[in-house]
Design a protein around this nucleic acid. Structure first.
Lengths: 145, 145
DNA sequence: TATTGTTATACTCTATAACTATA
DNA sequence: TATAGTTATAGAGTATAACAATA
């Protein structure tokens, strides 16, 4: 017999995800970046300069909200805005030298608690976890019909 | 050769998780409960009455924050507070008749977009997803050394 | 002294609305 | 008309601090 309904499985999934997000927020030190800030930094480092609107679409938030994040990163001198060469509406966001430097350090420093916890999983569990990350991403990005 | 580092895997996991949380928040209708409110309701329905402090520990937030959630649910007449029989400090939180009723409806209505998206996964992917939920929960609840 | 709960205040992240400028 | 961006305001979901009551 099936011991759990789909609803229960979904509730447990969302519960686990909620716990992970809050734990990550709580474990981060004062001078660390927020989750959205980190993700923007990673994206700029991996994919190069991007507009606020493109970053917002990628992270699933509104352009205005992304604007706030960019402003915060700009005030920390981690990113800078430069006007697009041909499209006068666009501002390209890119990492500053300080942003590039910080990123190298943060790759080691960030999410230390999580790295340690994951290190204690079995290889099979790690595979299962990172495989699920791909599934979760697809679910979250799936357009509503 | 390993194509991704552990840091990259972790970044992608947190990215996917962030997208899922935001998507869930955005998809929920105006009269629906927040994630924390839903989780408290499920817990009370499954495990019976509990104190604010116990609920806070279970959800990984501060008792004061859980107090806010309980007050919101109380104003919607979904839960009620009753004094503990023997311990004068404690207030037991339990579902009202309306809360029990609402829960039945919400089991069907809540997270509809997610149910639909998950329904389109293969059985193997579903298993992988819900299996990972257990791993994520353990990670999030693992005490810091 | 530790635990439970409350109230007050503030911060982070994101949303909506209204606007300007450019395409 | 659609897209990019900015500014202002507001809301949800937490946190910290200070306190009162009970164990």
């Amino acid at each position: 017999m099936p011991s759990k309904t789909l609803e229960q499985d979904i509730t447990e999934l969302m519960h686990a995800v909620g716990l992970l997000v809050r734990r990550t927020r709580n474990e981060s030190c004062a001078d660390e970046l927020s989750m959205t800030e980190s993700m923007v930094m990673s994206r700029l480092a991996n994919d190069g300069p991007a507009t606020t609107a493109a970053l917002a679409r990628a992270e699933g938030i509104k352009p205005q909200s992304m604007g706030t994040t960019i402003t915060a990163l700009e005030e920390m001198d981690i990113v800078k805005r430069t006007p697009h060469a041909t499209d006068g509406r666009q501002m390209l966001i890119e990492l500053t030298p300080k942003g590039l430097e910080l990123r190298k350090k943060n790759r080691a420093a960030k999410q230390i608690w999580l790295s340690r916890a994951i290190a204690e999983l079995s290889p099979e569990e790690r595979d299962a976890l990172f495989n699920a990350a791909g599934i979760i991403k697809r679910l979250a990005e799936k357009p509503t019909k």
